[in-house]
Design a protein around this nucleic acid. Structure first.
Lengths: 196, 196
DNA sequence: CCTACCATGTAAGACGTTACATGATTGG
DNA sequence: CCAATCATGTAACGTCTTACATGGTAGG
């Protein structure tokens, strides 16, 4: 269900087409909740069917069209209900922890490679999130700039503070994963050293 | 695909029925990768169809049966291939970060409740994982004990070390989430104090 | 005219959730 | 005999991935 609210969060700032949403998605809320186009377009249809958004077809050139969506009152209250209601947590499903816990079956090289790739993976995510956080604090992220344009002066800091909070969660997660894998590498060396 | 390898990890220790697996699952690998019965039984069928495990029906009483599965050579090499191969990472999809980043739409009370429930949720997980880790280090977890019985003396520490590594990942994750939400609560108070 | 970008999807299948469904056996 | 536990699922639905599919428009 979160995809729906990620899309509403963007659309609440102003009307947009599916294509606009897709582009903005990748440079804003998509950092927190990934979704490919093949999920976005059908979800917009479902949201329209549910009365949360409405789309108007606009002409483009002679034959082209684009459908511009805006949030309805029902969509706004659904969004607020999600924001004010409890969040449901998914059950634990951590492939990396699972693999780590049974790594005795892997070769020492494969174990090391696994942890190194874990570090590389989370380093990549971390870099992106840190860049994004920089753009948020500098208020230079396009989606945030649009959001701040329609925000009363007194609330702007508040909006930025929550964006920062969201990204900090991911950043701390990534740092924890990296530190864990590094400790794992040290442990591997100790295990191998013992055999030698 | 991880469910398959979670099940193989258990079955490799010794033959078991779906029911045995389900019970052991919840007190061992299920802490790392959750799965309900309704997923376990069908997955065992698929694994059998794929030739990774074989089941034999045993009689129980006069009419009852239970199917006891064991890992085939193909299953063993599939498991080792997974363990020695690269892990594929899922794209980011963090409902809590998403909600946090747009929390300006929630009431201050709802924002506080959200963070408090986040702490409660991860505290609950943390407690379970810490208990489990204690049972692992004390070598009193039943699944681990069965595993160690068939493990050469020299490898036992290694097996335990990897279990510890896996659980530490989850424990650190939980602690990070709790610390983050606590900082979030402090931030909320600062935001509200500013308005007063 | 052609390339980059605008614009919108479908189809098939894997994975996961929730709820429901059924019957046998063992121990007290 | 009755309750707890053993034992094995199905059905319906929603989410997500991967791959494919199609055409229009704007600018150089």
């Amino acid at each position: 269900m979160s995809l729906r609210y990620a899309l509403l969060a963007l659309l609440r700032v102003g009307p947009m087409s599916g294509y606009d949403l897709k582009l903005q998605f990748d440079t804003s809320v998509g950092h927190l909740w990934h979704a490919p186009d093949s999920q976005i377009y059908p979800e917009l249809r479902k949201m329209q069917d549910a009365g949360l958004i409405e789309g108007e077809d606009q002409v483009r050139g002679t034959r082209g069209t684009r459908r511009v969506y805006h949030v309805t009152d029902a969509g706004e209250s659904d969004y607020l209900a999600w924001m004010n209601g409890p969040l449901s947590y998914a059950r634990v499903r951590e492939p990396a922890s699972l693999k780590a816990a049974y790594l005795e079956a892997a070769t020492p090289e494969a174990a090391r490679t696994f942890l190194e790739e874990h570090i590389a993976h989370w380093r990549g995510e971390l870099d992106q999130w840190e860049d994004e956080l920089t753009r948020i604090e500098g208020r230079s992220n396009p989606a945030l700039m649009r959001r701040l344009e329609i925000t009363p002066e007194d609330d702007k800091d508040r909006v930025v503070a929550f964006k920062r909070l969201g990204y900090e969660n991911l950043i701390e997660r990534a740092r924890t994963e990296i530190a864990w894998a590094q400790r794992g590498l040290t442990m591997l060396e100790r295990l191998q050293g013992r055999d030698a």
